[in-house]
Lab assay of single mutants.
Amino acid sequence: MKTQEELTEIVRDHFSDMGEIATLYVQVYESSLESLVGGVIFEDGRHYTFVYENEDLVYE
């Protein structure tokens, strides 16, 4: 089982391919040991929310 830090790094690596990240945040109250819920804001102003669970990243 991966730690929350490892899950965060996986998500950061994925989004870094889309541009320069200004902020990546995790909603700790919605996340667990198996899933990571949060959002990412890019330097150009784009903002996505995401759920990473079971090695699957869903964002909008």
Score class of each variant (00 low, 15 high):
Glu53Val: 14
Thr49Leu: 15
Glu53Tyr: 12
Leu33Glu: 09
Asp17Thr: 14
Ile41Asn: 03
Leu33Ile: 08
Ile10Met: 09
Gly19Pro: 02
Ala22Gly: 09
Gly39Leu: 11
Tyr48Gly: 02
Leu33Gln: 10
Thr8Gln: 13
Gln4Arg: 06
Met1Ile: 10
Glu5Thr: 09
Tyr52Glu: 00
Phe50Gly: 00
Phe50Trp: 07
Asn54Arg: 14
His47Phe: 09
Met1Trp: 15
Leu33Cys: 07
Val28Tyr: 09
Leu7Ile: 15
Phe42Cys: 02
Val51Met: 10
Val11Thr: 03
Gly45Trp: 03
Glu20Ala: 12
Gln4Asp: 04
Met1Tyr: 11
Glu9Met: 09
Asp13Ile: 12
Tyr25Trp: 09
Phe15Gln: 00
Val26Arg: 01
Leu7Trp: 04
Gly19Tyr: 03
Val51Tyr: 09
Gly19Leu: 02
His47Asn: 06
Tyr25Cys: 05
Asp44Glu: 02
Gln27Val: 10
Glu34Pro: 12
Tyr29His: 09
Thr23Lys: 10
Val37Asp: 03
Leu24Arg: 00
Val58Ser: 15
Asp56Lys: 14
Thr3Phe: 04
Thr23Pro: 01
Glu30Gln: 11
Phe42Glu: 00
Glu55Trp: 10
Gly19Met: 02
Arg12Cys: 05
Gly38Arg: 00
Phe50Gln: 00
Leu36Lys: 01
Thr3Lys: 06
His47Cys: 05
Gly45Ser: 05
Phe15Thr: 01
Tyr59Leu: 11
Tyr48Leu: 10
Val26Thr: 07
Ile41Met: 14
Phe50Asp: 00
Gln27Leu: 09
Ile41Arg: 07
Glu55Gln: 13
Glu9Pro: 02
Met1Pro: 13
Val40Lys: 00
Tyr48Cys: 03
Tyr25Ile: 06
Ser35Pro: 04
Asp13Tyr: 15
Asp13Arg: 15
Phe42Ser: 00
Asp17Asn: 13
Gln27His: 15
Phe15Ile: 03
Glu34Gln: 13
Gln4Phe: 08
Thr23Leu: 13
Glu5Gly: 07
Gly39Arg: 11
Glu43Met: 13
Met1Asn: 13
His47Trp: 12
Arg46Ser: 12
Gly38Asn: 00
Val58Cys: 08
Glu55Thr: 14
Thr3Trp: 05
Ser35Cys: 06
Asp13Cys: 07
Tyr48Ala: 03
Leu24Cys: 03
Gly45Arg: 03
Glu30Cys: 08
Gln27Ala: 11
Thr3Val: 04
Leu24Ser: 02
Ser16Phe: 06
Leu57Gly: 01
Glu34His: 14
Tyr52Arg: 02
Val58Ile: 12
Gln27Asp: 10
Val40Gly: 00
Glu43Ile: 10
Arg46His: 07
Glu20Asp: 13
His14Ala: 13
Ser16Leu: 14
Glu20Pro: 15
Val51Ser: 13
Val11Asn: 01
Gln4Ser: 06
Tyr25Glu: 05
Phe15Arg: 00
Ile41His: 10
Glu34Val: 11
Leu7Gln: 04
Val40Phe: 02
Tyr52Asp: 00
Gly38Tyr: 02
Val28Asp: 12
Arg46Gln: 08
Val40Arg: 00
Leu36Ala: 04
Ile10Lys: 15
Asp56Ala: 09
Lys2Thr: 08
Val58Phe: 08
Leu7Gly: 02
Ser31Glu: 12
Ala22Met: 12
Thr49Trp: 10
Val58Leu: 11
Gly45Thr: 04
Asp17Gln: 13
Gly39Cys: 06
Ser16Tyr: 06
Glu20Tyr: 11
Phe50Lys: 00
Arg12Glu: 04
Phe50Asn: 00
Glu5Asp: 08
Thr23Glu: 08
Leu24Trp: 05
Glu60Phe: 08
Gly45Ile: 01
Val51Thr: 14
Glu20Trp: 08
Met18Trp: 14
Gly39Tyr: 07
His47Ala: 11
Val40Glu: 00
Leu33Phe: 11
Ile41Asp: 03
Tyr59His: 07
Leu24Val: 10
Gln27Tyr: 07
Phe42Gln: 00
Asp56Thr: 13
Tyr52Trp: 12
Met1Phe: 14
Met18Ala: 04
Glu55Ala: 14
Arg46Met: 09
Val40Asp: 00
Glu9Phe: 12
Ser32Gln: 10
Glu53Arg: 12
Glu20Leu: 12
Val26Ser: 04
Tyr59Thr: 09
Asp44Cys: 03
Glu53Asp: 09
Ser35Arg: 07
Gly38Thr: 01
Tyr29Cys: 07
Thr49Asp: 04
Val37Cys: 07
Glu20Lys: 15
Gly39Lys: 11
Ser35Val: 08
Val28Glu: 15
Ser16Lys: 15
Val58Gln: 15
Gln4Ile: 08
His14Tyr: 12
Tyr59Pro: 03
Ser35Lys: 13
Ser16Pro: 02
Gln27Pro: 03
Ser35Asp: 03
Glu30Lys: 04
Glu20Phe: 12
Leu7Met: 11
Met18Arg: 06
Asp13Thr: 13
Asp13Val: 15
Ser31Lys: 08
Glu6Tyr: 09
Arg46Trp: 04
Glu5Ala: 14
Glu30Phe: 04
Tyr25Arg: 03
Lys2Pro: 15
Val37Pro: 01
Asp44Ala: 02
Ile41Gly: 03
Glu5Phe: 07
His14Ile: 08
Phe50Leu: 01
Val51Phe: 10
Tyr52Phe: 13
Glu6Asp: 05
Glu34Asp: 09
Lys2Phe: 07
Val37Ile: 09
Glu20Ser: 14
Ile41Ala: 04
Phe42Val: 00
Glu55Leu: 11
Phe15Cys: 02
Gln27Met: 12
Tyr48Glu: 01
Ala22Val: 08
Glu9Gln: 12
Asn54Gln: 14
Gly39Ala: 09
Leu57Phe: 09
Gly45His: 05
Leu36Ser: 02
Glu60Ala: 12
Asp17Leu: 14
Gly45Asn: 05
Ile10Trp: 14
Val51Asp: 03
Glu5Cys: 07
Glu55His: 13
Val11Tyr: 01
Ser35Glu: 07
Met18Val: 06
Thr3Ala: 04
Val51His: 13
Val37Tyr: 10
Ser16Glu: 09
Gly45Ala: 04
Leu24Thr: 03
His14Met: 14
Leu33Asp: 12
Gln4Met: 13
Ser16Gln: 09
Val51Trp: 06
Asp44Leu: 01
Ser35Gly: 05
Tyr52Pro: 00
Phe50Ala: 00
Glu6His: 09
Leu36Gln: 02
Glu43Lys: 14
Val26Ala: 04
Met1Val: 08
Lys2Leu: 07
Glu9Tyr: 08
Lys2Trp: 07
Val58Trp: 08
Glu9Val: 13
Gly19Asp: 02
Ile41Trp: 15
Leu24Ile: 15
Leu57Pro: 01
Ser32Tyr: 07
Val28Ser: 15
Phe42Trp: 03
